[in-house]
Design a protein around this nucleic acid. Structure first.
Length: 669
RNA sequence: GCCGCUUUAGCUCAGCCGGUAGAGCACAUCAUUCGUAAUGAUGGGGUCGUCAGUUCGAGUCUGACAAGCGGCACCA
């Protein structure tokens, strides 16, 4: 043991410092500017407090606000602690539990004092003010290692039962640390933290909302009161973030749906969509596109019943596993009492299908199948009903009635990998056609509770891995990742997560192997050997549900859909009524060429017409006045552009037709 | 399903301490024919989410229910 340690710095230089030197002292030795800017340090890659002594040779990097990811993580974690301290000061008797940094801020879960309900938004300004006081007081944050039993005793004595439980469950052998804020408040925490609360910007955070949250995420546990905040390094960043939120709110598909007249939802059919003509046009275009893609990929479209006997759902296993989410109707004409229906309960029950898979197996079972029939790909734009928990419903994104771009592929075991690989290629084509450049592929592996043998799971998981490898997409650039424990109870699955224009991700596509359902519903085929075999069944979807996918499309494009999907592609707007005749001819020519055209002959100013059609996100506006009528031309104005271009019809029509052609119908460039 | 909030005209919202509703936009009518994001005037429109309760009187206070919003949990 020498008295010195050798510290290598990120610029390649190295320094000898006395053993036990802290990162703060190191920063001071390098320069006063750095000492002031340093927030924490990375010692051999591990993020630690500035006050942590360096006990052996190490590479050390000081973390400043310039290391944004680290700095934000630190700052948000600190805001969470300041929040907890503020709440305990203002509301004595509140128990603290847990409060991490999140993607854009932080939260902290509290158990409010007995007799006081959960925190409400009205409490937030007061808490914010207290937080600012703590930040301005510039309280030093100090790390301290504690003995587990002593800490548990202390938490119990202070009535912090959640903390005591947490401490008791920390893994054996793990160092247990607390952080002091000044010398009058502490919380158990792994750290690291900033040197003092004063390093936070009192104007760079905002408490945003309150919510209930279950202790340890389990609904059987007590519900805690969670306070969310957003936190940044400085005020400017906070303002930029708030502006981004506003931008996201403008893209909200519920708002766009109303503004663009696409659909509505109402109480009498909550969770089911009323599609208006314009919204339904988007749906039709998307469905027609998918149908062409599936036809070309060798799928056979089918249509199966909405209602099937509960007996059938018992046999498929849904009755046991999924009944809570199924709509069940009696197969009888109900008696009435005071106008209210009375069900005898003696008759049979039918259930609205929550999934299409059993019905597809029933089609498969009609007639003896040969190995020559496989793979058999049965597709259905299947309308399903699921009685979702009420709190889960959300615009088009989570509904009770929806239509999947569903299909089930029945194949032999040796066809599995090539079928999955072909599916991934199809899905890739579709996402790119729809304007999504990036998506991540994840493999959800066997959960703890599952059906089937380990051998089956080994085989199924490896097959999916192999299939992704066959497409070359098992790389970090494709977001390739394996998720242990996330699979369905009967099989592993691949998940496809789309990234949208503002960086959010949406799980849409999926493909999963299934050997359980063919077994339960006794699906079989005759192999080359003349014996019966079980087919493997693949459940797969690319868009997931049309409803949700259209919601995602609207938010991704901020309502400005690509021309082939736009409900109205062109509006011909007149400036004076003298131009109506020519405008009518223009519209007729475009309609004859297959474009979706509307005319606007209203006695209104062109300013108003441009504004209204722009707000409706019509991609192309053709403005026609006396001049155009005389010259037999149109002035083309594109959505969001002020530039205009005057063109004769015979060049305009083919150009617009080309632009409005769905991507799969375009001739290869 | 759980926690919090919200529900007033088609939309966005105002309505103080309880005294039978108001704005802007939209809509209708009239005038205006006007060159690229709101022409002007006039007018019609509300059982204040539903059901109970308190009160001489409830949009306003209380309760239940429903839906919506933000989370949590759920999403075989």
């Amino acid at each position: 043991m020498t008295a010195h340690v050798r510290i290598s710095l990120p610029d390649g230089s190295a320094r000898e410092m006395p053993r036990g030197t802290t990162a703060a002292e190191l920063a001071a030795a390098i320069g006063p500017g750095l000492a002031k800017a340093a927030l924490a340090a990375r010692v051999d890659g591990e993020l630690v407090d500035l006050e942590r002594p360096i006990e052996h040779d190490a590479s050390v990097a000081l973390v400043t606000a310039k290391d944004e990811a680290d700095a934000l993580e630190l700052v948000r974690h600190d805001y969470a602690h300041v929040l907890a301290e503020a709440v305990q000061r203002l509301f004595p008797g509140t128990q603290i539990t847990f409060g991490p940094a999140t993607e854009d801020g932080f939260y902290y879960d509290f158990a409010p004092p007995p007799g006081r309900g959960p925190f409400t938004e009205a409490d937030l300004p007061v808490i914010e003010e207290e937080m600012r006081r703590i930040i301005r007081a510039d309280k030093p944050l100090r790390r301290e290692v504690w003995d587990r039993d002593a800490l548990i005793a202390r938490w119990k004595a202070e009535g912090e039962h959640f903390k005591a439980e947490w401490a008791a469950q920390l893994p054996e052998g793990e160092e247990i640390t607390v952080y002091w804020s000044g010398d009058d408040w502490m919380d158990m925490c792994r750290g690291p933290h900033l040197p003092s609360t004063g390093r936070l910007d009192p104007e760079a955070f905002r408490l945003t909302r309150v919510s209930g949250a279950y202790w340890r995420g389990d609904p059987r546990n007590p519900q805690l009161s969670r306070i969310y905040g957003t936190g940044w390094l400085n005020r400017k960043q906070l303002e930029a973030h708030l502006a981004r939120l506003e931008e996201a709110a403008k893209r909200d598909h519920r708002r766009l749906g109303r503004e663009m007249g696409l659909f509505h939802l109402q109480e009498e059919a909550h969770g089911s969509v009323f599609w208006h003509p314009r919204g339904w046009m988007i749906y039709r275009q998307l469905e027609a596109y998918m149908r062409r893609r599936l036809d070309a990929a060798g799928y056979l479209e089918v249509r199966t019943p909405q209602l099937m006997s509960a007996r059938q759902w018992e046999q498929s296993g849904h009755w046991g596993k999924y009944r809570e989410n199924m709509f069940v109707v009696p197969d009888e004409i109900p008696a009435t009492e005071d106008g209210k229906p009375i069900v005898s309960g003696k008759g049979e029950f039918l259930a609205l299908k929550p999934m299409n898979c059993p019905a597809h197996v029933l089609i498969f079972r009609q007639g003896l199948k040969s190995y020559r029939d496989l793979p058999l790909r049965l597709a259905e734009f299947g309308c399903c009903h699921r009685n979702e928990p009420h709190g889960a419903l959300h615009g088009l994104m989570r509904v009770r009635q929806f239509t999947q771009d569903d299909a089930h592929i029945f194949c032999r075991e040796d066809q599995l990998v090539s079928e999955v690989a072909a599916f991934i290629d199809l899905l890739d084509r579709v996402y790119r056609d729809l304007g999504f450049a990036r998506y991540a592929i994840k493999l959800a592996l066997r959960p703890a509770q599952r059906f089937g043998s380990d051998a089956m799971w080994d085989w199924a998981e490896q097959s999916l891995r192999d299939a992704v490898a066959a497409t070359g997409r098992n790389t970090p650039e494709h977001g390739w990742e394996e998720l242990p424990g996330e699979g369905a109870f009967y099989a592993p699955k691949l998940e496809f997560h789309l990234e949208d224009a503002i960086g959010r991700t949406w799980q849409v596509g999926t493909i999963q192997t299934d050997t359980v359902l063919p077994e339960r519903l006794d699906a079989s085929y005759i192999g080359e050997d003349g014996a019966r075999h079980r087919p493997v069944m693949l459940h797969r979807a690319i868009l997931g549900s049309f409803e949700r996918f259209i919601g995602i499309l609207l938010e991704h494009h901020a309502g400005r859909l690509p021309m082939w999907l736009a409900p109205v592609q062109v509006v011909v707007a007149t400036i004076v009524s003298d131009a109506d005749g020519w405008a009518g001819e223009v519209a007729a020519a475009l309609a004859a060429a297959g474009l979706r055209v509307e005319t606007d002959f209203r006695n209104e100013k062109i300013n108003l017409k441009v504004r209204e059609h722009s707000l409706m996100k019509v991609p192309v506006m053709l403005v026609v006045g006396r001049r155009e009528a005389a010259e037999r031309t149109v002035a083309v104005r594109r959505l969001g552009e002020e530039r205009q271009e005057t063109l004769p019809l015979d060049t305009l029509v083919p150009a617009l037709v080309a632009e409005a052609t769905p991507p799969d119908l375009r001739s290869a460039a």
